[in-house]
Every structure is written in structure tokens, then in C-alpha cells.
Design a binder for these strands. Sequence first.
DNA 1: AAAAAAT
Length: 489
Amino acid sequence: MTETFADLGLGEGILRAVADAGYTKPTPIQQKAIPYVLMGRDILGCAQTGTGKTASFTLPMIDILAQGRARARMPRTVILEPTRELAAQVAENFDTYGKYNKLTMALLIGGVSFNEQEKLLDRGVDVLIATPGRLLDHCERGKVMLTDTKVLVIDEADRMLDMGFIPDVERIVGLMPVIRQTLMFSATMPPEIKKLADKFLMNPKEMAVDPPSSTADTVEQAFVSVSSRSKRKTLRDLIDREGDALKNALIFCNRKREVADLFTSLQKAGYPVGALHGDMDQYKRMEWLEKFRNGDVTILICSDVAARGLDISTVSHVFNVDVPNNSEDYVHRIGRTGRAGRLGKSITLVTKEDDKLWAAVKKMVGKDIPEIKMDGSAPSSEDPAETEERSPRRPSRSRSSRGADKSSKSAPSKKAADTEETVQQSPDRDVSESETPNKEASNKPDRSRGKKEPRKPRRGRGEHHDIGELDEMTVPFGQSDQLPAFLRR
DNA sequence: AAAAAAT
């Protein structure tokens, strides 16, 4: 049984880099895979992110690449990833572990300019890390030749399949020499993946490791019944009531549009949020991800682009604003938290319309997921006594929770206590909650806005001078709690 | 009906 990285046969520079990074013991997938990769064997590995999978191929590849040099436009190794973020992540891995081995690398992903990528290719690269579309594009332009590829890695194969990339992958493999080493990794091994393995691999060594202990033990799961109108409010209440326990959170939505809208909404309400979805420009994508990683923002609202593979080691919470359409994605989403032995919490908002999807999720999870009742006030309408009391209550609630939101700029917490007791309101509160998009919001009676305006010195950036912006910022979400001024009449 | 990825 191997105990250390040195036992695996890795070179000295790599061992030093690994030690610098603070790792002492290889993970199971690394123990299994690295010796075979060094032997030149093909590998079919069943492993998820979080198992140390990436290093199980980057480390031995650095070792292999230590011998020889790359020729112009002819990379020696190629790594295919399904998303740009994953590709960038693997590139960072090479930076980290390859720091004592000079090797050249190019990251070929879409959404960024060709120029720089081409320059790198011209100089010759040892490692090419790419998403399929952009790599093919470069091939067609004659900027890269795959005829000298010694090692190919197909990462996240099942996801490539889901995303319809396999034809692209087949074309890419067709441009490579038949004699090469191929490593294929997949989180799951459905028959289609097996078939692909037969096609791409030669006499592969098969290995599997357990998924990182997540769903079962270290993630506390719960759900809240909501109406689709009250989702945002409920979400804010949930964030607030987590208090300091919420170190950072991923919030998943099913649609890109909803990611964008929710981002605007929470940002206006003063929460430290970022956003990530596939229609954003690449620069923004990277910027928000980086800000989330380094803690500049503690909440990242995202589509399923971030559901799999992204390695953010310390996410304390995952919120599903929508039940994922594909119940497997649920597992991937909540797998973003509770990693590396840490505790995590995931809360899913479930509407009546989600019944079927939610049933599928529960079936897949295979255990009971408890319901959170929001502060005694029933999700639907079990407390008629409260119904008439909305307006009188409003003011007190506004002070406590809205006021607290200001301070939430830096930490979405603190106010947990007073929010708890003031939150209870009529079940139909979402009427005034007004989750309407901004344009509609601005159609609301001016009166309500005029009243509130002076009380809102919070975002402090002079927006108050601009009427156009005021429309956007005053009414929609941040303040909606104070709306009843005109409703009261 | 959705997300991802090439323009």
C-alpha cells in the first residue's frame, strides 16, 4: 500500500510542488491512477471532482512531459473539458504542480480572443487544455496540429455526453495518432460511456473510487414549500436566518434569465452577490468566480454551469431556487458543499409545480429530506388570523430586516435574531412583495416611492440623483417590504 | 423547456 506521493514514482520537482501545496497523502484515485499513467497505460476512471481526480492525471503528466520538448503548433498532451471554468481550473492545477518543471501550456476556451492563444500555439505547447468547440476551431484554422499528441485526457466524459460534445470529441480524436495514451474520466459509467471507452481507449486499466462523502453524511438537506411568487423573499429570509453560519453560498437557478434577475434583485437588496451563467461574457464569468473564491462576494448565483466540477473548497451553503430538471443535477449541486469533511447545508425551494421533480430527487437521494417551515407562518395559508395584519406590521419589519440588510453588505448575517420574530406575516404577503421586473415596478404609483426615498441612504453612491435609476432601485425588491403605503388606502 | 459550447 502506497502512503506518500514519493511512493508513486513521481519526480522530485513535482513532489516539492505537491508538498508546497500542503498535500502529504495521495487520495485513493491518485494512488490508483498515477502509477498506471506513468506506465503509459490507458485508464478508465470513475471518479467525481472532489476526489482529487484532476491531480491524478496532472501530476503524472507533468512527469511525462519532463522529457522532451514541444514543437510549434504540435502539443504533446491534450486535455478536454466540458466547460470553460473547468478547463481554467485544470490549467491552474498545472501552474501549481508544474512550478518546478518548466512546461508550456495553452488554455483554449471560447469567449476569449484567438490572438493570444495562437501566439502560444506558435511557440509550441506541452499541454493543451481546451473545450471542444474552440479546439476544433483552432484545428480548422490550421493553428494547431494534433498529429503529435502523446497523451489525451477526456475529463468529465458523462457530462460531455450530456452536453452533446461527443461528436466534437470524436472529430478531435480522429485528428490524433492512433498510438497514444488516453485517460478517460467520468463521474458515472452509463453504457454509452462504456461504448465510448471501447472506441477511444486501448486495453484500459479500469478503476473507480467512492464519491466524496457528501450527500449522505456531511450535507444537511432541507426544503421549503413556496409559491413561485414568494421565492425571492423566502430566499432572503433563509439567507438571513442562517446568520453567521453562512460563510458563503451557491444559489442555483434553472434558467440563465433567472440567474440574472435574481442577481440584480439581491444586489439591490444589499447582499454581497456575484453571478455565473453561460450567456455572460467570459471576462465576467472569470471575474465573479474569482471574487467568490477570494471572498469578495460571499454569494454566487449560478446556472448549472457551476453544478459540476467546480472546485471551491469551502462552500457552506447551497440554495436551490428551482428544483433541477434533472435529479442527478441535484446531487451535483449539493455536492458543491460539505466537501473535504466539512459540514454543509443545502436548502431547496419547492413549489407545487415541482412536485414530480422533487419526488424524483427524493427518490434519488434515497432518504427523507426534512421540511423547514418559515417561522411558523405557513407556506401556503394556515394562519388566517394574520392575514389582515399586514400593514400594521410592515413598519416594524421594515426597520429590522431592511435596516439589517444594509449591514449585510459585508456579511449576510447578524440580523438573524430580529428577522426571525418579525418575519411572520400574512401568507399572501408576496403581493406587496412584488417580485416584478424593474420596468413594471417603475409603473407603480409614484407616491410609494416618494415616501421611501429619503429613508434610503444605503447604497450610497449618488444614485439618488438620477430619476431613471431611482425607479429601478427603489421599488423592486430591496424595499418592497415598505410598499404598503398605497396599499393601505 | 434548460444548460453547456464555436461565431
